[in-house]
Design a protein around this nucleic acid. Sequence first.
DNA 1: AATGAATGAGACTTCATTCAT
DNA 2: AATGAATGAAGTCTCATTCAT
Lengths: 208, 208, 208, 208
Amino acid sequence: MAVKSQGPGSRGGAYAPEHTRRVLLEAATALFEERGYHATSVESIVSAAGVTKGAFYHHFGGKQDVLLQIQEDYIDSRLRNCEQVMESVTDPQERLRELIYEALVGIEKYRAQVSIFNAERRFLTGPDFAPIKAKRDKVNAFYESVIQQGIDEGVFSPDLNPRIVSFSILGMAAWALSWFRPGGQLSIRDVADQMSMLVLSGALVHTD
Amino acid sequence: MAVKSQGPGSRGGAYAPEHTRRVLLEAATALFEERGYHATSVESIVSAAGVTKGAFYHHFGGKQDVLLQIQEDYIDSRLRNCEQVMESVTDPQERLRELIYEALVGIEKYRAQVSIFNAERRFLTGPDFAPIKAKRDKVNAFYESVIQQGIDEGVFSPDLNPRIVSFSILGMAAWALSWFRPGGQLSIRDVADQMSMLVLSGALVHTD
Amino acid sequence: MAVKSQGPGSRGGAYAPEHTRRVLLEAATALFEERGYHATSVESIVSAAGVTKGAFYHHFGGKQDVLLQIQEDYIDSRLRNCEQVMESVTDPQERLRELIYEALVGIEKYRAQVSIFNAERRFLTGPDFAPIKAKRDKVNAFYESVIQQGIDEGVFSPDLNPRIVSFSILGMAAWALSWFRPGGQLSIRDVADQMSMLVLSGALVHTD
Amino acid sequence: MAVKSQGPGSRGGAYAPEHTRRVLLEAATALFEERGYHATSVESIVSAAGVTKGAFYHHFGGKQDVLLQIQEDYIDSRLRNCEQVMESVTDPQERLRELIYEALVGIEKYRAQVSIFNAERRFLTGPDFAPIKAKRDKVNAFYESVIQQGIDEGVFSPDLNPRIVSFSILGMAAWALSWFRPGGQLSIRDVADQMSMLVLSGALVHTD
DNA sequence: AATGAATGAGACTTCATTCAT
DNA sequence: AATGAATGAAGTCTCATTCAT
């Protein structure tokens, strides 16, 4: 089942600690997605990774620590992408399109992590997860600020409540996880276009 | 903490099976919402309900059975409400408004159940939960059919993909659970109005 | 699954208590044989019998009481049969043949009870089971006495130890439970004949 | 009551996995014999062995796994002994004597295991116990083949049914468990001699 | 860096029995 | 004679974590 990374008597540096760490993170991510955090035992993680419990606790403080690191990887990536959108585009309409697309791309690329986040949202609080929460709030703030910018610039309706609207957009994107199937008829681009269309122009047929 | 399982006004020592059952369901619902299904022990449920473990297993097949019944109660109510909307209103635009409102009202009224559903979605599959899944699919189908109806009647844009749009609407409503605070500045009506506005007219300012 | 023995409002005497009792005994016997005494719950007995727990405890003192009555029924029948053999036949050789046959017939007819006895032998001790033990000892004594009689009359070899021989005969008969299949190619008669032949004449070919 | 799981002379705090394992097996064997498998709790096993429940489940898959290993140890020994008899002796009469003796020696030496086997026979089926069943069948086949050999060589009566005879022999030996007391007046040798005499020559006095 | 035996608390569930009705 | 809700102790097993090596 497991492959020993090294025979006895080999030189110390050959153990490839980073490899062990990465393999553990990947195994945990897959299992957390499949069964959920609480239903995944440390035993099942180390068994899937082909290492022992000792190795696990050598690299991580515990099961929760793994959850934290998985989430941090994801939210870091998401935050970077949002920042890049905000830097490279300035038009609020275009920014919104890009942010919607970015959210969906994140879901496609980090499917497992998003799934875990949604399911374990309840446990991602508390002091340990404060940095993650801060980054999430920052991401959310980008969406709200773009709505506000659009209103201020007169291109978005002044009747909009930026908070509700931004959360609505984040919600429709987040929900895609539950129904979007990668590799199906629809591409992430298709979904993003539809959502942008809906959010910007609405469902009603216009006569203008 | 514990309530003796005896209905008000009942004779001393009388059995009150329905009361016991209800108290257990309520305790479980509250705890599942607060801590999550897996992190809630049967022990904590019976202790909160003021009954014994034996009584719990007399009324329910197990912890999962409780989860199932909680979800069934909720989805039944949701399905009934959707059906009523479809019967009492026929205009697609009006139907959509009402369905959006209905979804949010459900979230406000069955906050705990929705929260549990979202978190434990992974476990709400399998043969035991098939009836629940069927009802959920039926609810979802109402939303999609209304979009399709609007397109057919020429009031909604023919460029819309009914599936994506309906899931987007359901997503933005579902996500409200994570940020909407009952009793805060915004009412459910406010949120429903904003979402309807967004979905029907879009964020952009129109010149017509 | 269960059939109510009586509709509400019926006259008292119509409940047929003996029927309830018998049905419970039969259900328990079948389940004890199939799963063993310890692995059979009172719940499964009453469910198989189509009555409630209350009825069970109305008729029996508890699960062990049922076990006791099942064994008593069987051992009574066995004892009666042995006594009848001893009364109707006097020749030791013939008596032995008949006792061997009788033991096997008992196994065929009371298969479940014998199976239960063998498996739960350990629990058939203690004061509650003293009457049963006494009857068993009586049955065993018949076998031993016939061997002794044969030796005394000079027809059985004086080198035989009656105790060992009688237990050997009882053992070979009892063991038949584990391999004899009623309705198969061999009849109980066949088996009894072979065992009698073995016990009386031995396997070796004789030249007399 | 409890023995620290540390081998004699081992260094302080040293793990002794094999010792733990052995102690658990011994404790389980004794308790299974005394009270039966179902009436023995894991708690009582670990308490008698002086280890924790965790250690138990570290070494064994569960209570049934222990039962399986106990039985496997016994049947392996029995099979080895039978094979050795078959190799070292060729005369059918002598083989039968030896096989009878071997069966009784096994009962004396593995008294607890045989007792457990007889009582839990019902649970020793199913896929998990297939290897054990196969070995038992192999042992039984030796007895039957020896009867057949004797018939073929003209030393045993051609009227014998090898299957019935072999099961009869196995039955009388197995039953000895219920009445033979080690250390009593009779030795295993005595019992084996009596049984061999009975099986080979029969109870009747011969005139040849 | 890694092992894996051991811990001990706590998980879910079963069950024989009691008792108010 | 019968019901079935309720009990509470005990059952098997899991698990995150520790630690001697």
